[in-house]
């Protein structure tokens, strides 16, 4: 019996790491949704682009420096984030501005088409082969009791917590963060108060691209394979955001972690003990999504919206 508990807690920790990545992706589109009401179905592809760019930097630096070291990964990370800034800024021009007053249907389809375009472009540039990303921590692990935790997972959880703290501070304490809150509350009133709404929107897209890039950088070595299907993982972050209540930053984090745990535990121990779970473990997030939407469409932390006629 105790071995089952060890197994499950082992998987739960790995689930928290996976869930942190889901949470970061969900955080990315929650930011955009809150500020601009655009639902970004291309978030997973932004993540994929970030992972590819980072891979490119890492291999370039390693080939010029000779051997991998933590510094190289750090510099590559900064390079990728700078790329993400430019990328998010371009996306604001391409996606956000033309679609300002379009119905939600067109917006969804536009971001889906963006995701298709990005996937195709990346596949054309990088080639059809999967790449092997290099983990900065190798295979190092830490043992606590009977539980083995890889350094990478600890790093993932740590950086997720760090990012959340940074965002919390930014949103609630800084001038720009409060401007963003005001914009998401009511863009027109914000504009009248002298907030440069366009600039704020551009900034939101840039932040979202940065978060996506970082989550891609974290996810790629964990999956130990990098190819264009990574973008589909971004779709799995939607159930996470819905579970937490769409549009709530705390909800995105909690929802992501809960889904990560559910997914890992059901794929591991539970599917050994219950035959039928093996059949459904790759769609379990979608079952959770539909169940949440049927029972409590506003999620765990969402606020019920009353539509005015």
């Amino acid at each position: 019996m105790s071995s089952i508990i060890t197994d499950i807690s082992q998987e739960a920790i790995s689930g928290i790491a996976l869930g942190s990545i889901y949470a970061l992706i969900a955080l990315g589109f929650t930011l955009i949704y809150k500020a601009t009401e655009v639902v970004n179905f291309a978030q997973g592809e932004l993540m994929m682009v970030g992972a590819y760019v980072n891979f490119f930097f890492v291999t370039q630096f390693i080939s010029s420096a000779g051997e991998p070291s933590l510094w190289i990964f750090f510099i590559a990370l900064i390079g990728s984030v700078i790329f993400a800034v430019a990328f998010g800024w371009i996306l604001d021009f391409v996606i956000n501005r033309p679609l300002k007053d379009e119905p939600i249907f067109s917006v969804i389809m536009a971001t889906i088409s963006l995701s298709i375009i990005l996937r195709a472009i990346v596949a054309m540039i990088a080639g059809p082969m999967s790449l092997l990303p290099i983990s900065p921590f190798g295979q190092n692990v830490i043992k606590i009791g009977g539980i083995v935790i890889s350094m990478l997972d600890i790093f993932i959880i740590g950086s997720a917590i760090l990012l959340v703290i940074i965002f919390y501070y930014f949103f609630n304490k800084t001038r720009w963060g409060i401007a963003m809150q005001a914009t998401s509350e009511d863009p027109i009133a914000a504009q009248l108060m002298g907030i440069p709404v366009n600039k704020v929107h551009a900034m939101v897209w840039i932040f979202s691209a940065i978060v996506a890039t970082i989550s891609g950088i974290l996810l790629a070595p964990r999956m130990s394979l990098l190819d264009t299907s990574m973008g589909f993982l971004g779709l799995k972050a939607f159930p996470a955001a819905v579970l937490g209540g769409f549009g709530s930053i705390g909800g995105a984090i909690v929802g992501g972690i809960i889904l990560g745990i559910i997914e890992t535990v059901s794929m591991g121990t539970l599917s050994f003990h219950f035959e039928w779970i093996k059949e459904i473990n790759d769609i379990i997030v979608w079952i959770v999504l539909i169940a949440v939407l049927m029972v409590k469409p506003d999620g765990l932390f969402g606020v019920e919206k009353v539509k005015k006629v």
Binding site: A110, S113, I117, A120, A123
Partner: peptide, 14 residues
């Protein structure tokens, strides 16, 4: 093919 589809859809929507 994917690229062309994505572009067509995108241009039509905009």
């Amino acid at each position: 093919q994917l690229l062309i589809f994505g572009l067509i859809m995108f241009l039509f929507i905009i």
